[in-house]
Amino acid sequence: MSAPPESCASRDGYGRALLRIAEDPRVVVLEADLGKSTKSCLFRSEYPERTVSLGIAEQNMMLVAAGMASSGKIPFASTFAIFTERAFEQIRNGIARPGLPVHICGSHGGIHTGSDGSSAQAIEDLAIYRTIPGMTVIHPCDDISAEELTIQLVEMGGPSYMRTARNKTMRQYDYENMEHLRIGRGSVLREGSDVAILACGVMVEMALNAASDLSDEGIESTVVDMHTIKPLDNQLIDRLSERCGCLVTAEDHITFGGLGGAVAEWLSLNRPTPLEMVGVADRFGESGGTDDLMEAVGLTPTGISNAAKRSISRRNAVS
């Protein structure tokens, strides 16, 4: 197929995926007023008869999706990441507990969202959905992987949450190079033995930039796109722990309970290994341009490379 425009946000990939999975008649799309933002509008324009508008009422949307799933449909329900959280208990009790295949997409997640300010910048979504039994949690880094991973959700069975980003990010995948892109499997984008950087979402691009900077200083790093936060690719983490002996996580998310938290839980229980986390500290965001904001909260390539050096130092101090 022809490649989409070069510069896209992961939410664009979600929108394109909905069109590609539309051939499955079970697929339905639910919106809560923000279809133009989440990009479910693409599906609506082609398949209005399978698109359900629920208005500004997220709690109702989640249970309507559950009811449709119980009747054989595969619902994809989207709104802003932050507003999915309004319906957390509906997702927990109404979707996940009966194990219904409802796929929730929260767009505009993270500090990266920018000038709308802290009310829109969900920085806790990955953590809270990860705590729900049986829930798959995904945060792709670009439009191509968001598209592919969304397509894979159709056959997955249980419930899922995917965070997409509002703003454009550099593309890390192309259609000819996606065999290794699988839900639950981290994608190794760069190889190096000194330190492993596990990143998700918009931080993947920064992790690669950090790896390039580190390489200039003679430090070679492995960079992984950990698009799936749950189930976590524990085997890959074990291999990287053995190979590099120290790790860094990078996420546009609070440092509690998200990618960093998940990796820390695994390592501390199974393979104690020096780990540094790059993420949002215990604070809310604020309004501002995306680049300025990311700098202000420390989500930068420099933040990642400094964390990598700290992790390496701790490893060296132990050995």
Partner: peptide, 10 residues
């Protein structure tokens, strides 16, 4: 809400 989802699906 769940029933509405069932009704729309039907």
């Amino acid at each position: 809400s769940f029933g509405l989802g069932c009704a729309i699906a039907a």
